[in-house]
Nucleic acid binder design. Structure first.
Length: 821
RNA sequence: GCCGGAGUGGCGGAAUUGGUAGACGCGCUGGACUCAAAAUCCAGUAUGGCUCAAACCAUGUGCCGGUUCGAGUCCGGCCUUCGGUACCA
């Protein structure tokens, strides 16, 4: 009989639901385990194979832990605010709220068909006031502590989304992370969260969490800590000073010019009359470039002198001040001390504009008179540096900093690449920022008692270039809470990454109305023990969440330093080499497969494809293999109906009382348990399934075993299957006569350690490292016994005939190698 | 350019600390069952040589070299590819 998945799967899902098996008792905190996948964006494309690939294996891991006795909490929810819903509204006129709710309903039913053990009572969505009210509350707390602020700055503007983007949300090709359109620079007044205040802690915290090294490295690079000094250069005939950041104070004697970012405010103050025109032209030219053109390393260096001169604090030397677009306003002080001899960029620039190049660090093994063909950027011996001559440059670095601090010309400084998180968006479908702008009082926070600032439903989406909220009179006009005068609400909404930076707290009490979450609960359950999601969030969501987590800790709202103790990234499933997306038209619909093969077969197939972290290109070629496997399992159980009712079995059997066949089966099931356990624990689903397939191949001999061993084996097999293919396993468990469902009464059988090893070992016999024979010998035989067997083997005698034995290498139970000459 | 991962049969992929390369699955070939087909079951399946066949021999984990009794695994130098990053002073 063909495995009747279409009847079985809904049947078990109903039983699980009726018995409320997956509702987690949050009051039981011994053995608590919080397993989380990144919540879903409810797009119109619904669930695709990539989602399944994220959720189904993670659910297998969660079930495995549940079987092993953990009190597992596995929730699911919807990251429901965001641009696509709004863009869809502009195109079709369907309101984002309506389309999002429709999508959520569809996706929820798809999710339920996967058979994951989500606690549906914990379900949440971010687009309802009940949730986003607390984004606003969070904003207010940040604001009150100076961590939310507004400033005018050059920002990334997506020409298609008509909104600003955070740095993290601009791809390295200069395009929008969401839509791929061109991003340009605009000067705008925007809201920021001061994530930089936590830069050092965000860096240090990485040491304490079990995340993929790759991801931690990406965060380290993104945070970009540099240790060096800030040095002040006096400007000739001026009261102004130019402050630069450098990691190489040891090269200070080699500075031959200073570069300011073209937009730097000092430029206007310092430019001389005869250079005004050239400077203005150059600034115009710079403004026209996109960020990516401007920062391209391939682009030839450009710049103009501004006519003013700075004074080197070390030697009083007079050096020209230039502006050049390779100095970035947004990094460090926006000013660079140029040392052409020891910096590649400065070298290139100086060469092009015939500026002097002075060597102050001598490379080991090179004479001072040798020509300098390229910048030398490593450590060496200091030269041309007065009292510092002869020092190693790393030592000199410290000495120079000390000297600068004494003479007040500079100080030790740590600089970060990380910028503050730009959170305002000029769009409708997001959390309104709880601020009121009053002509008299300026920025005024909405009071906590007046939260939430509700997002109005009736808005006009057709207003190109202007946020729909900005044009909504009912929303925008308000009285100032301080003075009562007419005032305007902030029209920007928050980046949706604000929503996702604390949602893992909210799952534990999604409808709690007293506060952002119930600390008495979250303290017991947060941090998340296992977090699974895409690696593309490395420097966005995963960084923001860590920041907000630390902020909430500092507010006294939680007692841990990090939100996600363990992190796993599933690999990306591509189709014909491209990431699945509706716009590319290469989305594979999982429903097609669940209709044809059932959810369990599909789950198994996704897990069997390859290493979880690797992903791969979609192909349905091998699905027949997992289907056959499931069919064979089902047949095996149906041919042993009710057997567990008739026979009672022991927990452990002594191998010596078993028949030869029973011995083989008994060993195999226990070896499989041991192997499977280890593989599953580390998300190695493919090899775990392979071990089950090996087992099922071996179980062809099961009919030749006594009934006790049959029951012993089938019980264990059903439990092993339960994590991977829960519907199938429940059915099999019932077929052999079990009354309670597996997940009602989770159990795990540990492997019988006495049954893991074989009686005999296959030993590879090598002659000079080449395999020439294998011998079978009792397990753990000593060298003498193996040697005796080796030298009586005809293949060995043949190969060593006429040769001298130089050496013998013996590795117990593995190898005997005879080295001959 | 820099940083990181990955290169193993026709395909997806296995291989504790260096210790019998190719587990498991797909596909393919042959056979059984069938009037026939599908499904299922059984056997075979890295390449080359020599064989009716088996046995046997040689080669083989991106390329070149090294360490070792022994290298997919370690070291040095490349190539390809996929991510990340992009003048960060």
């Amino acid at each position: 009989m063909r495995y009747p998945f279409a009847e079985i799967e809904p049947k078990w899902r109903k039983i699980w639901e009726d018995k409320k098996l997956y509702k987690t008792d949050l009051s039981k905190i011994d053995n608590k385990l919080y397993t989380l996948v990144m919540f879903i964006y409810p797009s119109g494309a619904k669930l695709h194979c990539g989602h399944w690939y994220n959720y189904a294996p993670t659910d297998t891991w969660a079930r495995y832990k549940k079987l092993k006795g953990f009190n597992v909490f596995e929730p699911m929810g919807y990251d429901a605010f965001g641009l696509p819903a709004e863009n869809y509204a502009i195109k079709t006129g369907i309101h984002p709220y309506d389309s999002t709710m429709k999508n959520i309903a569809d996706i929820r039913s798809q999710l339920k068909n996967m058979g994951c053990m989500y606690d549906w009572d914990a379900e949440l969505m971010t687009c309802v006031p009940e949730y986003y009210k607390w984004n606003q509350w969070l904003f207010i707390q940040l604001y009150k502590r100076g961590l939310a602020y507004r400033k005018n700055a050059p920002v990334n503007w997506c020409t298609s989304c008509n909104t600003v983007l955070a740095n993290e949300q601009v791809l390295s090709d200069g395009n929008c992370e969401r839509c791929g359109s061109q991003v340009i620079q605009k000067n705008l007044t925007q809201w920021f969260f001061k994530i930089t205040d936590y830069a050092e802690e965000l860096l240090q915290g990485l040491e304490t969490i079990n995340w993929p090294e790759k991801t931690k490295l990406m965060q380290r690079n993104w945070i970009g800590k540099s240790v060096g000094a800030e040095i002040n250069f006096k400007v000739e005939n001026s009261d102004e000073t130019i402050s630069v950041f450098t990691t190489r104070p040891d090269t200070l004697f080699g500075v031959t010019y200073v570069v300011l970012a073209p937009e730097h405010s000092l430029v206007d103050k310092l430019v001389t009359a005869e250079n005004k025109k050239a400077v203005a032209d150059y600034r115009d030219q710079t403004r026209k470039l996109t960020e990516i053109e401007r920062t391209s390393t391939i682009k030839e260096k450009t710049g103009v002198p501004i006519g003013a001169f700075a004074i080197n604090p070390m030697n009083g030397e007079r050096i020209p001040i230039w502006i050049a677009d390779y100095a970035l306003l947004t990094y460090g002080t926006g000013c660079v001390m140029a040392v052409p001899a020891h910096d590649e960029r400065d070298f290139e620039f100086a060469t092009k504009f015939a500026l002097p190049i002075r060597r102050v660090i001598l490379q080991d093994g090179i004479k001072e008179s040798d020509e300098l063909k390229e910048a030398f950027t490593e450590t060496g011996t200091m030269v041309n540096s007065n009292q510092f001559d002869g020092l190693r440059s790393d030592e000199g670095k410290q000495k120079i900093i000390a000297y600068l601090e004494e003479t007040d010309f500079g100080k030790r400084k740590i600089n970060f690449r990380l910028r503050d998180w730009l959170i305002s968006r000029q769009r409708y479908w997001g959390t309104p920022i709880p601020v009121i702008h009053c002509d008299h009082c300026g920025e005024v926070l909405v009071e906590e008692k007046d939260l939430p600032v509700e997002l109005p439903y009736d808005v006009d989406f057709k207003s190109q270039g202007v946020s729909p909220l900005a044009r909504n009179e009912n929303f925008i006009n308000v009285k100032c809470p301080k003075c009562g005068a007419d005032a305007k609400r902030e029209a920007d909404t928050m980046d949706t990454f604000v929503d996702s930076s604390w949602y893992y707290f909210r799952y534990l009490n999604p409808h709690f109305s007293e506060d952002i979450f119930d600390k008495s609960k979250t303290d017991n359950w947060v941090p998340v023990d296992m977090y699974v999601g895409g690696a593309e969030h490395a420097t966005m969501h995963l960084l923001y969440a860590r920041f907000i987590h630390k902020f909430l800790r500092d507010l006294g709202y939680n007692n841990s330093d990090e939100p996600f103790k363990n992190l796993v990234h599933q690999g990306t499933i591509t189709n014909q080499g491209a990431k699945m997306s509706k716009s590319k038209g290469n989305v594979v619909n999982p429903d097609d497969f669940t209709v044809e093969y059932g959810a369990d077969v599909f789950r198994l197939y996704l897990m069997f494809m390859g290493p979880y972290e690797l992903g791969g290109d979609w192909s349905e070629k091998g699905i027949a293999g997992t289907e056959r496997f499931v069919q064979r399992v089902y047949d095996l159980f149906t041919s042993h109906e009710n057997i567990a009712k008739e026979i009672s079995i022991k927990e452990k059997y002594d191998l010596q009382y078993l028949s030869d066949t029973e011995k083989i089966i008994y060993r195999k099931i226990n070896q499989t348990i041991a192997k499977y356990d280890g593989e599953l624990n580390h998300f190695r689903f493919n090899t775990a399934i392979a071990s089950l397939m090996e087992l099922i191949n071996e179980l062809k001999a099961l009919p030749n075993c006594g009934k006790e061993i049959q029951v012993y084996t089938l019980e264990r097999l059903a439990i092993l299957l339960a994590a991977m293919a829960p519907h199938l396993a429940e059915e099999c468990w019932q077929i052999i006569g079990k009354e309670k469902t597996i997940f009602e009464n989770p159990i795990w059988f540990d492997a019988d350690k006495d049954a893991l090893t074989e009686d005999v070992a296959n030993i590879a016999v090598q002659i000079s490292g080449k395999l020439r024979a294998t011998i079978q010998i009792p397990m753990n035989s000593d060298e003498a016994a193996v040697k005796a067997a080796v030298y009586t083997h005809e293949r060995v005698t043949k190969w060593i005939e006429g040769k001298t034995i130089v050496k013998e290498i013996f590795v117990k139970n593995k190898i005997f190698n005879v080295v001959v000459k």
